[in-house]
Nucleic acid binder design. Sequence first.
DNA 1: ATCGTTTATCGTAGAATGACGATAAGAGAA
DNA 2: TTCTCTTATCGTCATTCTACGATAAACGAT
Lengths: 111, 111
Amino acid sequence: MTRRRNALKCEPGVPTRNRAATRQPAERLAAMAWGLAHPLRVRILQLLVKRETCVCGEIVDEMPIAQSTVSQHLKILKEAGLVQGEIDGPRVCYCINPESLAELKELIDKL
Amino acid sequence: MTRRRNALKCEPGVPTRNRAATRQPAERLAAMAWGLAHPLRVRILQLLVKRETCVCGEIVDEMPIAQSTVSQHLKILKEAGLVQGEIDGPRVCYCINPESLAELKELIDKL
DNA sequence: ATCGTTTATCGTAGAATGACGATAAGAGAA
DNA sequence: TTCTCTTATCGTCATTCTACGATAAACGAT
């Protein structure tokens, strides 16, 4: 193991996006901020806020990137807890997670 | 050039952390969120908020990582516009950037 | 001018990200 | 069942991040 120091200090090898489950505020905030740390993810979130709810395909249509990449970004947003997906027949309907969004706003506001 | 599609779609090769200068809200928010997208950077920011102002060395003392790594994180926070550094003799005194923090809070709140 | 302190930068290494196309998986329709 | 549509996952590749130690740079003090 070469990265012993890192391994000890910053949650052993846990990628930032998987830290959403923690209880520690700094990690919670970092995980949610990470979800917003890409322009396309911000746009996806804004789209969901605007439209209230949105089928995956509609998101893809709005974005200038491949469907598989949109799917990856949605996965990251889900891991950050900012977004939820609900299966609806052959489609998936996405919406924002109000609790997490509220928590994010609170954590940011307390800064 | 092999990454043509990426190059076309998402600000040609500009790393997220360098997008702070943009005028587009989604990119601004993404760049600032990126600054907060690591637990140690959140802790640094919280430390600066709490202490009002802070010499670099004090930050290093509070963090469980090497001085060079803290310096890198501070650089990222500066690039995100969240933090300012002022040279004070042989030291550097860091403080939060109130305007950017206010902007961040506003952008998050508008979500 | 030299020394000591403080901070930034360099060079490196391993892991993660972000993008793509291709493919699998799931649900409804024919 | 089979076909079609929709979405997720796989495999790959280049780039970026995060961390470190070592070194450079800047400044005050001796």
